[in-house]
């Protein structure tokens, strides 16, 4: 743990309840945690433990029922929808289990997309997208469309898309869940490399192997943090 680094994420007593009354589901029951700049964190838990809910809240895709969430110095609860889209655009890079690339759109254009929503000029975007694709080892596949790429390659395009904006943190939700062993190894190495360049990486997973790639492991059970371990790799 990089002591003294500024905080990227501060979650304080966050709860999340779906539904109302007797059918209400308590996905999170008061989670508090802090993640500093440059950390590589794995959030673990069985299905139903609340880890996906936590990931959605961290990614500003969902809002907590109660409790506070600061990303950098911004209190997310005080932001409106337009401001949230700016936070997602500038501070967060997403990597999903199912890749979530836009179909019938080339790798380079997929990677460019977050920059387009930031208003970066076309030539600048193109340059940065190619650079990001090169950094994930896909410099020669920039014109390929998602359906022409393997799962591992698609996930690397998704990582390039998450990296291209230089976000404060990369949020990866089961990034290797749909991949074979070899691709899993490559993706984990890639996440490691990204973390070494100074980016905060948060991986949500239920696989021990993936969690071992991180330097800190937060385990959730029934919507609460039950373990928070940091180790030196």
């Amino acid at each position: 743990m990089s002591q003294g680094s500024p905080l990227v994420v501060k979650v304080d007593g966050v709860t999340k309840v779906y539904g109302q009354g007797e059918t209400a589901v308590h996905a999170l029951r008061g989670v508090s945690l802090e993640i500093a700049q440059g950390e590589f964190v794995a959030i673990m838990g069985a299905s139903g433990s609340g880890k996906t809910t936590l990931m959605n809240i961290l990614g500003c895709l969902d809002i907590p029922t109660a409790g506070d969430y600061w990303i950098r110095n911004l209190n997310v609860a005080e932001l409106d929808e337009e401001q949230l889209s700016v936070v997602r655009s500038q501070l967060i890079g997403f990597v999903f289990q199912s890749f979530n690339l836009i179909p019938r759109t080339s790798a380079a254009q997929n990677v460019e997309l977050p920059l387009a929503y930031q208003g970066v000029s076309l030539s600048e975007r193109r340059k940065r997208a190619i650079k990001a694709l090169e950094s994930v080892g896909l410099g020669d596949r920039s014109r390929h469309e998602p359906q022409e790429l393997s799962g591992g390659q698609q996930q690397r395009v998704a990582i390039a898309r998450a990296l291209v904006t230089n976000p404060a943190m990369v949020l990866a939700d089961e990034p290797t869940g749909a991949l074979d062993t070899q691709s899993t190894k490559e993706i984990l190495e890639l996440l490691h490399k990204i973390n070494e360049t100074g980016s905060t990486v948060i991986v949500i997973t239920h696989e021990e192997e993936v969690a071992r790639a991180a330097r800190r492991m937060i385990r959730l059970r029934d919507g609460q943090v039950v373990e928070d371990t940091t180790w030196v790799a």
């Binding site: 990614g59 895709l61 929808e81 337009e82 889209s85 700016v86 997602r88 655009s89 500038q90 890079g93 997403f94 979530n100 690339l101 836009i102 179909p103 997309l113 977050p114 929503y117 930031q118 898309r161 904006t165």
Partner: peptide, 16 residues
Amino acid sequence: TREIGIRKAIGAPKSA
């Protein structure tokens, strides 16, 4: 719908 979700997740504002 899914594509809209992806676009929003990577920062597309409502107006876009």
